[in-house]
Amino acid sequence: MSLRNKSIVSKLVETGVTLLLATLVLFIIINLAPGDPIRILLGTPEVASVNNQVYQEKYQELREAYHLDDSILVQYVAWMKNVLRFNLGDSFYTNQPVIIELGKRMPATLLLTIPAIIIQLTLGIGLGIISALKHNKTIDNLIRLFCVFLSSLPGFAISLMLLYLFAVRLKLYEISHTVSLMRLYLPTITLGIISSPALIRVVRSNMLEELGKQYTAFAIARGVKKRAVIRGALKNIMLPIMTLAAHSSVNLIGGSVIIESIFSWPGIGKYALDSILLRDYPVVQGYGFLMICIVIAINLLVELGYIFIDPRLKRPERKIRWGG
């Protein structure tokens, strides 16, 4: 087996173990959180109940029906068995299968995050390179100021300002609860813009480092064209960019909760947030599981990407130290 194949197998094994441990931790944390889902499910009567006995009976009946009195380990094993059959359970509130509920909302989240990632990468790489090439010049300062400005303003504040401008003042945006291309542009641009400063900084600092290296100086001295020098430097900083972009993608998919909530975009982030507040365990567990799978899958893809991108891995005689 070649070194590359060995690395791939080892990564896949690591992935399986990580998935198992992560789901166990997730399950325990969710179940240990304060709050009783059945009490929330039953709701607070408009008039406080005098007959506590009937309430208690109903309460106990539901706890048993949802197996909430079993030990966490028993619940976890039962849940994992279902997960292996692609069954994430039913929502306490809508009684609909969680996998279907998440499936209904996932396209909305992807519709929001994929263009946002494209905007982030375009801004991040584009402005990062420009900033590095125009080091310490006005344009570099302006780009850095832009980054500081965006980083220091909370996402919700930027979102509300844009919503006010576009929906209230300019009447160019519709505030509703529907998913449509007409409602996509503002949250997408907001999400793309607010997530770009980190990437701009990474690209800028790595580019500066590469451009300051001896090989670049030699290349310039040998009369290599500026474009070719930049291209070479960019190729060498692909690994950190790829890592950051991958992590950022996970954050955008799982963490666009605020954007979804403010723009009333019915994606999985908002659904998860509502479910956390309602202690809708099956949904929170299902969402957590999905996020774990996405994080692990993206990390795996990144690491496999390293294997294919990094030419050193083509040489079987050299030992590779991962993460070094």
């Binding site: 209230v168 505030i175 609860h177």
Partner: peptide, 21 residues
């Protein structure tokens, strides 16, 4: 009648200010 949930309180206010709601 279109009856919608907008959970964020600021967005609800903006919805009526924008005259959509």
């Amino acid at each position: 009648i279109i009856h919608e949930a907008i959970s964020d309180q600021e967005t609800r206010s903006l919805a009526v200010l924008s005259q959509r709601a």
